[in-house]
Simulated scan of single mutants.
Amino acid sequence: MLGNPRLLRVLNERQLLDRLAAHGPAARADLAKATGLSKPTVSAVLAGLEEDGLVHLVGEVLGRPGPVSSLYDLNAAARHVAGIDIGRDWIRVAVADLRAAFVGRTDARNTARTSAELAACVAELTRQAAAEAGVEWSSIACAVVGAPGVYDPAAGLLSLAPNLPGPDLGERLAAALGVELVIENDINLAAVGEMAYGEGRGKVNFALVSVGTGVGMGIVINGELYVGARGAAGEVSYLPAAEAPEGDETLERGATETVAAAPGVVRAAQAAGLLLDSAREVFAAAAGGDPVALSVVDGEGRRIGGLLVAVAAVLDPEVIVLTGGVGHNLDLLGRSIQRRIAELGPLRPQVVASALGDSGVLLGAVAHAKARAWELIFELRGSR
């Protein structure tokens, strides 16, 4: 290390920027004390970072003996990132700074019929969000896209995503956006969002289970997202389900997803005689006290409870965070979930509802993009 001044400089820069990012403005003397670097080294490093726009002066420290001390802080607006959540019904886009603070957001219905249409729509929405925030497109360091399914970056193909058009979506998105691009499973990113901002904060091992238009799981082990050997860890929609019907839908979407996701709730309600067209309507009827809807919701809670016991048996997480259009109804589902868990043995996972709502994937995408942006910044600085 001592023989590589460039590497040493970058390590020192990263140490100071990490400190400013975590704790906010600081004087040079305070940075030296916190990092263990000498005051001359801190001054030299800050000068280089300030020249390149990564830190800036934000004020002065008053009331101390001796000369006035300047306060430095990370210039979070030096670069920006984009987080993109592609769902079956909605596309949500956020542009954020290097502290992951949103500076622009755009949501729109997903009406694309082809991968080309979808990529063009995503690019348009992302550029719109940047423009409305007053952010030049050249400032976007990278974009992270959350989408259903499993993305193979080597092949550039998206699989296990029946709700999205075309396996070539990744290639088309990269061409349409023209920036460094990362594609990740949407529920994995929801777990990243939960780890950064929600019920996963401070947890070393936890799982996020999403039940909505589909069923999926994000896994955090030892504080890191776990995706498995081929990116398919957490594809719990394919777990067997005793009551799943046979047929193409079960094979394509998975047995658990066929019966436990929103379409399964609607089928169960209609089979019970309720003329309702969405899971939202079923849960609204149950909240209003309709006995048939309550019975349907009870059955859904039992299915989810069985799934959570399987998760607990394999992962033994500190907590299971439940989310999704169906899963967020823990006030209605909780009793039947706990009853089913008790029936299936001694495992008692703690189950909580996500507080991030429909922004969980987007928050995770931005958090992931921020981390990747800093990697790119330091890679560039290390090559100079």
Rank of each mutant, 00 (worst) to 15 (best):
V150M: 06
A353D: 07
Q15C: 14
V236N: 09
L294C: 15
A161N: 11
A342P: 10
Y238T: 08
E318G: 05
P291T: 06
T114C: 01
G87A: 06
A112V: 10
V361G: 00
T250K: 05
D331L: 07
E184C: 05
F102Y: 07
G273M: 04
P349V: 14
E194N: 11
L274D: 06
T35C: 01
E180N: 12
H23L: 06
G357K: 04
A232I: 07
G273Y: 11
G48A: 12
G254N: 02
V266S: 10
D152E: 06
G289Q: 10
R14K: 15
R64A: 13
A175Q: 08
G301K: 05
D107F: 01
A233Q: 04
A310N: 11
E343C: 10
A77F: 09
L54Q: 00
A293P: 09
G324I: 12
P153G: 00
I86L: 03
T35I: 06
A312R: 12
V182N: 13
A94T: 12
R303P: 04
P148F: 01
L160A: 15
T213A: 13
A22K: 00
L7E: 12
G66S: 14
E243N: 07
G149V: 07
V351L: 13
L169R: 06
G301M: 11
R280Y: 12
G87E: 03
L239T: 15
K203W: 02
P25I: 04
A130P: 05
G63C: 08
M1E: 14
V297N: 02
R348V: 09
P5K: 12
D89R: 14
V236I: 15
A26T: 10
T250I: 07
S70W: 10
A108R: 14
A367G: 09
A130F: 02
A369F: 01
I219D: 04
G66Q: 15
T256K: 09
V135E: 02
L276H: 05
K203Q: 15
S383M: 13
H56P: 04
G360M: 08
V10Q: 13
A29H: 09
G305P: 01
D186E: 12
S38W: 01
E51F: 10
D18W: 00
S383W: 10
V211Y: 05
R113D: 06
G149N: 01
A233E: 03
E300K: 13
R384I: 07
G3R: 03
D30C: 00
V95M: 09
T213R: 11
L157D: 09
Q270W: 09
S336L: 10
L322R: 03
A34L: 00
R105D: 08
G212P: 08
L251M: 13
D248P: 03
G327W: 01
R335E: 15
S70D: 10
D97A: 08
K203Y: 06
A255C: 02
V296N: 06
G324K: 08
G24M: 01
I84L: 14
R267W: 11
N163C: 04
G273L: 04
Y72C: 12
A285N: 11
